[in-house]
Write a protein that binds this DNA or RNA. Structure first.
Length: 575
RNA sequence: GGUCCCGUGGUGAAGUCAGGAGUUCACGCCGGCCUGUCAAGCCGGAGGUCGCGGGUUCAAAUCCCGUCGGGACCGCCA
């Protein structure tokens, strides 16, 4: 039907007779015998000059055949890539008329209520922004596949109907028709199957896998999302990090045209200490400063005896944060678990602060030096145990200084040496897994299992980009001895382990190779590389925060017959 | 489960704090004029249950209560 794409026409095509197909973006009529039509397809728009009286309106679908010609002097449009040429002597074929769209099919729809964009997603997708995002996504998928193929990985598809697993995210359940009362689950990840692929001798597996989790949605979370899932045999941590880095850097290069520098590494402990979070955004400073020594012998009760005292400095922030704003920050700090928040505004003499009178002159001087505080700076201080102190200041640091996620340079970082155990179960008091219970403990820390379990590190790692967690992985335990030891640390008995994880661990008896792997979220990577703050913008048909699809109105009530056939009974809703 | 913000012709906004006739602006739409525009221009027109329900009031887009929908975040996401 067509010889060229609208956005591809250039002066080199002058004189050619071409056919282009697309939608009417805009028409400008100048009486009966002259009209300009901007015809749009995914490649861009081109101006068509129509001398006949043809009734074409917004979003009509046209095939236009005409001659490419140079635009008359003074009418070149520098804003358009095709702006040097136009199609003249046009023969217009109306392939389909169209109802006027509910919103303009251009960048002005960026401001339209997202619910309306999603209700008419097929129109939203016609826009340059969405076309660009879908194509970046496609390019990233292709680059990832190529990179994994080049590195000798084998793509294997794992099932979508899987057994329910006892731990982890809430699952979507699928009722079995043949066995009423029994259910499949949709996979939160191919974890079980990929590790068994290692037992199966696949050696290097990958999959661009759809994963599903029935947890509340966010800007960076959808019920269903895509992961580059991979697993490798006979490797250590460096092998996995190298392989994933290669794929991520190739994807970034495909999306931006520029290959990022090698990805730096940081231990979890350093990330917490310097940035107060395990997914630090390295695009801005405002690092946590160590103040414990400054107040080692303080009289100030809120600081005395605290395990850790740390502060952050907001350059020139004294003027920006009035009493009201500081109260809000304090509330936020408290709701994040802080006992309180001390704010101090640096002055020429010392500090303007409600607590300044409790501090000695030496402490004031030492504090100024430690924070490198200049007049006009705002200093925020938290004193508590080490971890909550770091976490609260990390939250405040992000709250105050973090740019939109797409802005500025891309800062990738590997966070390594995560703790094996994180927190304790409220009921049993047993430690909980940081990553999952099959994660390899750090060999140097194995003797600390009984004496100090919370300090045991693991061979688990996260990949972080601009403060977003892209994904995580670990070296897995492949020896039953060590697995038993970790289960013991988690308070899981042999019987419970057999009941909960036997189907997974028993195959390891047949010769599991040492192995490890990783999975990272493609939606998040695409969003950041496409300059979007929300993964819905890089997903063709996303769900709203309440899990609805305004276009299809799903979810919808089940057909009573189908429900009955599945052996289900719907109970009335209870509050 | 929680905190905060938002809901006004097809679209985006102003009006809401401080109640007084569905008022205003821009875009779009329909009709007319117009032979070089490009977010074309000029003239005219249509289009609204101010998300929904209740309350207060002589009077509610505006105040109060409830509810629905959307968004950001916390919890949650081994």
């Amino acid at each position: 039907m067509r010889t060229h794409l609208c956005g591809d026409l250039r002066p080199e095509h002058i004189g050619e007779t071409v056919s282009v197909c697309g939608w009417v973006g805009r028409r400008r009529e100048h009486g009966e015998h002259l009209a300009f039509v901007d015809l749009r397809d995914h490649s861009g728009i081109v101006q068509c000059v129509i001398n006949d009286d043809v009734d074409v309106r917004s979003e009509y679908v046209l095939r236009i055949t005409g001659t490419v010609r140079v635009r008359p002097d003074g009418t070149v449009n520098d804003k358009l890539p095709t702006g040097g040429v136009e199609i003249g002597d046009c023969e217009v074929e109306i392939l389909r008329v169209a109802t006027p769209p509910p919103f303009p099919i251009d960048e002005r729809a960026d401001d339209v209520d997202e619910n309306i964009r999603l209700q008419y997603r097929y129109l939203d997708l016609r826009r340059e922004r969405m076309q660009k995002n879908l194509r970046i996504r496609s390019a990233i998928n292709a680059a990832v596949r190529n990179s994994m193929d080049d590195q000798g990985f084998v793509e294997v598809e794992t099932p979508m109907l899987v057994p329910s697993t006892p731990e982890g995210a809430r699952e979507f359940l699928v009722p079995s028709r043949k066995e009423p009362g029994s259910f499949y689950a949709l996979p939160q990840s191919p974890q079980l199957f990929k590790q068994l692929l290692m037992v199966g001798g696949v050696d290097r597996y990958y999959q661009i896998a759809r994963c599903l989790r029935d947890e509340d949605l966010r800007a960076d979370r959808q019920y269903e999302f895509m992961q580059l899932d991979m697993e490798m045999s006979f490797v250590d941590q460096d092998d996995v990090l190298d392989a994933v880095s290669e794929a991520v850097l190739a994807a970034a290069e495909a999306a931006t045209g520029e290959r990022p520098a090698p990805i730096e590494r940081m231990t979890w402990h350093e990330a917490m200490n310097r940035f107060g979070i395990d997914k630090p955004d390295l695009r801005f400073d405002m690092e946590l400063q160590e103040l414990t020594a400054v107040f080692a012998s303080t009289e100030f009760k809120a600081f005395a005896g605290a395990e850790a005292i740390k502060g952050i400095k907001v350059d020139g922030g004294a003027a920006d944060y009035g009493r009201n704003a500081l109260d809000k920050l304090t509330d936020k700090a408290k709701s994040a678990g802080a006992k309180g928040l001390v704010w101090m505004k640096a002055t020429d003499e010392g500090f303007d602060s409600p607590v300044a009178k409790f501090l000695s002159d030496d402490e004031i001087v030492a504090l100024k030096a430690a924070m490198e505080a200049q007049t006009g700076d705002l200093v925020l201080i938290v004193a508590d145990d080490w971890e909550p102190t770091c976490e609260v200041l990390g939250m405040l640091r992000n709250e105050i200084g973090r740019p939109p996620v797409h802005q500025g340079p891309y800062r990738y970082v590997w966070i390594v040496e995560f703790p094996l155990f994180v927190g304790r179960d409220k009921e049993t008091g047993n430690p909980k897994s940081g990553h999952h219970p099959f994660t390899m403990p750090h060999p140097e820390d194995i003797d600390k299992f009984e004496s100090d379990p919370m300090s045991v590190r693991s061979i688990a790692y996260d990949l972080v980009l601009n403060g977003w967690e892209l994904g995580s992985g670990s070296i897995r335990i492949h020896e039953p001895e060590l697995q038993r030891k970790v289960f013991a640390g988690l308070g899981i008995s042999d019987e419970e382990a057999e009941r909960k994880f036997g189907f997974f661990l028993n195959p390891f008896e047949y010769g599991a190779p040492p192995h490890g792997g990783f999975a990272f979220g493609l939606d998040r990577l695409v969003a950041i590389l496409a300059g979007e703050d929300n993964i819905r913008e890089v997903i063709a048909y996303p769900k709203t925060q309440s899990g609805q699809d305004p276009m299809t109105n799903s979810p919808i009530p089940g057909d009573p017959k189908a429900v009955e056939e599945l052996g289900l009974k719907i109970l009335p809703k209870v509050d």
